[in-house]
Design a protein around this nucleic acid. Structure first.
Lengths: 353, 353
DNA sequence: GCGGGCAGCCAAAACGATTCGAGCTTGAGT
DNA sequence: ACTCAAGCTCGAATCGTTTTGGCTGCCCGC
């Protein structure tokens, strides 16, 4: 007897919280159905009533509860993107592109950073499932784990960007660049400068993009019969890895005259190593990188790099995702965007060719 | 007559969707209350039943719907942070710090980028309100707009980080550094090198942090009677602004021998301008910046900068927010963290003092 | 033999929105 | 005069959870 009214009264006196649609209805003496209809324009509402409702909304600072809304509609108007490293401006730019595109379609996007670890990505994906996001774009960590990701996400649609997983799982949608082609072009540029001893610092070849870049490099060198195993290195994808491999390359008996790095952070590492060893770039050693970044023109020398259209990749991924969510699916489920070789100061003809 | 069964059947045949707690209950022949109790450990459940439930959860790939959960609990376990520029690694690092700290307490955080515009920030805050986040940390755009932000957010707790708004609104919680002190120390370092003609490129003085940095600079120069109005500039906070002001400073009749930039992007702009004008840094002109960033050691010269503990700022903001949400409020509602002068290569004694 | 506490389970009422169907007026068409 | 549609409004069901209070046995101590 006593506990019941007690709990009642405590509930009554809880802090005022947010206004609900019911409060608005009460304020104008209407039903909540009418208020809902007025706010969403889904049914007839008299002009007078509409005005009163809008006034009350203003006065009460009413804002619909998206939790309730999403629960009822089974749609949250929320997307997500997970990238391997947010502090890498290449991925940050992909995220921005996606945000910009999807904001126009009134979606909000959650962004996650897997730090190249599947375990972290999995945690994030599980969170997304619990929140019932409408779709996610993955720049997967490590080797993809596509089937495990699909398992975690259930029926939530996925688009892959930049990287894509091994063939263990058929991937419905993907957007990125032709890595083999881009790497081949870049290598051929070095060849055209007169280089013959060209090294590559590639990413782990378990990732398909790294494998393709290596492939493109090899194709170009095989063309002129100048491929040498000792010039092929696999680094971790970070700066330290790039630096370590560059040092090993440059301190061997017959060092290369040019180094091609398969992503942007490793390029920075290589540059650091070159400076540390006191070699002159580009006079003694040419450096060519992948994945341009915004402030690359501030470095001395300014780095020559293969630019991926990061922003466009993000925007396209967002578009593809929304298209499949809203079921105006395009059948072109895979998009290849063009790269661009940004020629700057870090490559020059070799001293003795 | 015909429409009703039709709609029924279409609803039946809708895509299978996600498993619910009801599905789990049905699968093990229990009630949903029991399943809930088992999963949350909130009530007695026999070991046998618990095992069956866990098996079913596994088998059905059941994951609780956080929308429903948040609706019922009136708590979403979600925080948010909004910063003026995500591509600035200083803010990115604050975000990381906050994420790391709050992840340990099982919160997830939404991150927003206002691009220095209150209008964009407002949109984001409104979205946060609709989603009923539990709290938000602001690194406010522009002049703060604290009272407007409070209006938009209603009863949702706010913590300010780095910047804080004008006194138009009492701010409950803030974490940052002593800007005046840091700027004064930096300026005094330049003085100690022998500089007397020291310029500052400050941010818009409507923001309080910019005003304080300017104040610290002035205090140091007034101490030796070396303050000159023509050496005081206000830039936009971006690279272009820094470059423009630096060019104006360096091309005047009696140029300064040292420039102090009040944030990191303007420092980059100034560096670019210096290189463009063909001046040697640090031999002809010394450059000192604010807000260190990760790759500043890659630039030549390596920049001497005032380092703010970005990561710690983010972590502290997260802690303060969680503390007020979970109502174990500490009364120390404002935290000042120490800065550090990172002496590198961009400052040297002036040619002719 | 009986009151009472405990272990284990459940039905029902929230949480805050949308939507379906139906009710009630009016005005126009026949 | 009767029907029908359009305009406006509302009640109730629903989305998937948590939580409260109650119910049932059962064992324990007296």
């Amino acid at each position: 007897m006593s506990p019941k009214p007690a709990s009642r009264s405590t509930r009554r006196t809880r802090r005022p919280q947010h206004a609900t649609i019911r409060d608005v209805a009460r304020a104008v003496g209407a039903s909540i159905s009418t208020v809902s209809a007025a706010l969403n324009g889904t049914d007839y509402v008299s002009a007078a009533m509409r005005a009163k409702i809008e006034a009350a909304v203003q006065q009460l600072q009413y804002r619909p509860n998206d939790l309730a809304r999403g629960l009822r509609l089974r749609r949250t108007h929320t997307l997500a993107i997970v990238v391997p490293d947010l502090s890498n401006s290449f991925y940050a730019e992909i995220v921005r592109g996606m945000k910009d595109y999807t904001a126009a379609a009134n979606y909000t996007v959650l962004v996650g950073d897997s730090r190249e670890r599947w375990a972290e990505e999995k945690l994030f994906l599980e969170m997304l499932h619990r929140r019932r996001v409408d779709g996610v774009v993955r720049v997967p960590a490590g080797d993809g784990n596509a089937s495990q990701a699909a398992q975690v996400l259930g029926t939530i649609p996925v688009v892959y960007a930049d990287r894509y997983p091994e063939a263990d799982h058929p991937v419905a949608a993907w957007v990125g660049v032709d890595n083999a082609r881009a790497a081949m072009d870049a290598t051929q540029y070095l060849i055209s400068l007169g280089h013959r001893r060209i090294a590559i610092i590639s990413g782990p070849t378990t990732t398909r993009t790294a494998a393709e870049r290596l492939e493109g490099y090899q194709r170009a060198l095989r063309g002129i019969g100048a491929m040498h195993k000792e010039y092929i290195r696999n680094g971790e994808l970070d700066m330290a890895g790039g630096a370590r491999q560059a040092i090993e390359l440059l301190t061997q008996a017959k060092p290369p005259t040019a180094i091609f790095c398969a992503n942007n952070t490793m390029t920075l590492g290589a540059l650091e190593a070159i400076q540390q060893l006191g070699r002159a770039c580009p006079r003694e050693i040419s450096l060519l990188g992948f994945d341009d970044f915004a402030w690359s023109t501030l470095l001395r020398p300014r780095l020559t790099m293969v630019r991926q259209p990061a922003r466009e990749i993000g925007m396209t991924a967002g578009r593809m995702l929304i298209d499949t969510i809203e079921e105006r699916t395009r059948n072109r489920a895979t998009q290849t965007l063009p790269t661009q070789l940004m020629v700057r100061d870090s490559c020059a003809p070799p001293l003795r060719p």
